[in-house]
Design a protein around this nucleic acid. Structure first.
Lengths: 133, 133
DNA sequence: CTACAACCTGTAGTAACTACAGGTTCAAGA
DNA sequence: TCTTGAACCTGTAGTTACTACAGGTTGTAG
């Protein structure tokens, strides 16, 4: 209604974040408590919208909500830039580990799939391999 | 007590699977219901132990419990070898996608971390980048 | 026979949402 | 002004794959 105030539905549309997720973020205290209309509907302004987008970007980069919480405190100037760098470097490390692990998995699965010779025998060589390996 | 019957604790030790996890697998029907001692303690034999190890190997390869359930039905000769191959190939595909996504993340995070010049300014360039990107 | 380790059941918690049910408010058209 | 229905509200339960209790029972070694 008034300038720059949007409902949760519009916020959801403009950010691509589910309404339930927005309410969930508020509940766990990662999004600020918004103003309400006379009837009790949530009304958001630019600040909250930016924060929501920030959260989503972080989530897409693989940060946990707990890490996002810390990053937000940095944005609110409660922590130093150092903290951000540390969190990010940890994140990079864990991503590299995950990539390595996934590559190993891939290799093993390709090996296993190769043993599957697509016949309709009652015994499957891949299953047998898994039972023994 | 009798030959080859072991308690849940021993099964847990020999497989490295948590006692609670073993009971959980039974509850969701992925492990068969074991015999019980007179007093009601679970007693496992070789068959169940092998099945548990199989489940764990599959989990380590990134299969979901639902997929493991299907693989087990194959082991029990209810489905053909084809099914196994299909599940495995899907698994390989999804792993490759995950690897690609993680590589992108890694790249972006390294870029962001580079903007962090580790000074104690109140404004952090990485956070600013995240708020705008 | 007594300790006490190992087991039992059942419930609740974890992460990060999603999906209802059952009720209220808002806004546009008649 | 009234009505209708979309959009909103709260609160609870479900998802995946476990893990962690609490409070009680059984097994076994000394």
């Amino acid at each position: 209604m008034s300038d720059n105030q949007i409902t949760i539905g519009r916020l959801s549309n403009s950010t691509g974040v589910n309404i339930e997720t927005i309410r969930y973020y508020e509940k766990i205290g990662i999004l600020p408590i918004p103003h309400r209309s006379a009837g009790g509907h949530r009304l958001y302004n630019r600040f909250e919208s930016d924060r929501l987008k920030f959260i989503r970007r972080c989530r897409k980069l693989g940060f946990s909500l707990d890490e996002v919480r810390t990053l937000l405190r940095v944005g609110d100037d409660q922590f130093s830039c150092d903290t951000v760098k540390k969190i990010t470097e940890n994140q990079i490390k864990s991503i590299r580990t995950r990539i390595r692990d996934l590559r190993k998995l891939e290799k093993r699965l390709v090996e296993l799939a190769d043993q599957c010779n697509t016949n309709d025998n009652t015994s499957c060589p891949m299953i047998n391999a898994l039972y023994q390996s």
